[in-house]
């Protein structure tokens, strides 16, 4: 009893100090939380601003005719970007035709045939390094091997540049897709007497297909939005392309060209083209995620 009484004041004062310390700690906790939340919400501002402006400036000109008409000449009104839409589709198509089979086949090799081989390790490292190469370097490469040798800017050169850009994405996502196939499936297939080839073609690939498609969608979405690889390989054109070996318009280069001219109509058309591009890229991304989540 005595002890408690004599220690009581000491005990209380201690707890008071501790209480203020606890309050300070919890206050500091609150402050940091608010800062963190505020910084996170701050990122909403630019995105909302971009989407708002793309819609506000892009919607007025958006009509069916912009997809069917040629770009207006400097200072002129009207027109559209039909040739740029087709150019983008054609060049992304060429890129996909080259990088798709290459990426998927090498993914099969490094995941199914020889996962531990030197070649497989080299493929993984190179694919990683290729993802880190600036997209404009893909354009420089296509310039060196196509534009310099043929002596002209062309849709084909643009396609080659996009193929290099898409290759690592397709390769690495396909590898992930194949890795996602349960090994029990493979073992069951071997157990039933299937050969390696039969297992890959009939069991592994069908199961991995949705995830592979996701990778392709992501690669297409990225390639469609890229400007740097096209700017000096496909260049631009005011007219409908008649072949793959002539300068070709694309949506992204149109935005770039029209954004720096002093004519309000052209600038508005750049916004409309941005709207089409952003809508396409977003749609492709969402589809990719839906296809992926269907499987998982």
């Amino acid at each position: 009893m005595d002890n408690i009484v004599t220690h009581a004041p000491d005990f209380f004062s201690n707890s008071q100090a501790e209480a203020t310390k606890a309050i300070a700690r919890s206050l500091w906790n609150r402050v940091l939380t608010s800062v963190c939340v505020a910084l996170s919400l701050l990122t909403l501002v630019p995105l909302v601003s971009i989407i708002y402006l793309v819609l506000k400036n892009g919607l007025p000109l958006l009509s069916w005719s912009v997809f069917t008409q040629l770009p207006p000449a400097a200072g002129m009104v009207g027109g559209g970007f039909g040739n740029a839409v087709i150019g983008t589709i054609v060049m992304v198509g060429i890129g996909l035709l080259m990088s798709g089979p290459l990426g998927i086949l090498s993914a099969i090799y490094i995941n199914e045939y020889a996962p531990a081989s030197r070649l497989a390790q080299a493929v993984r490292i190179v694919a990683k390094l290729l993802t880190g190469i600036p997209s404009i370097i893909c354009g420089v490469f296509a310039f060196a091997i196509v534009v310099s040798t043929t002596g002209r800017f062309s849709a084909f050169a643009g396609g080659v540049a996009l193929a290099v850009l898409m290759l690592p994405t397709i390769l690495l996502t396909s590898e992930q897709a194949l890795m996602g196939v349960q090994s029990a499936f493979r073992e069951a297939s071997y157990g039933l007497g299937a050969t390696k080839f039969q297992t890959i073609v009939r069991i592994v690939l069908p199961d991995a297909l949705p995830a592979i498609m996701t990778g392709i969608m992501l690669a297409v979405a990225r390639a469609a939005g890229e400007t740097a690889p096209l700017i000096f390989t496909a260049l631009f054109s005011q007219f409908w392309a008649k072949s793959l070996s002539e300068p070709t318009a694309s949506l992204s280069v149109l935005i770039y060209n029209f954004s720096t001219v002093p004519f309000p109509h052209q600038i508005q058309m750049a916004w409309t083209a941005s709207l089409v591009l952003v809508a396409f890229v977003t749609l492709a991304n969402i589809t990719a995620q839906l296809v992926f989540s269907k499987k998982h």
């Binding site: 971009i50 992204s252 935005i255 941005s274 952003v278």
Partner: peptide, 8 residues
């Protein structure tokens, strides 16, 4: 933000 093209 990652999906928006550089030119936009």
């Amino acid at each position: 933000l990652a999906a928006i093209p550089s030119v936009v």
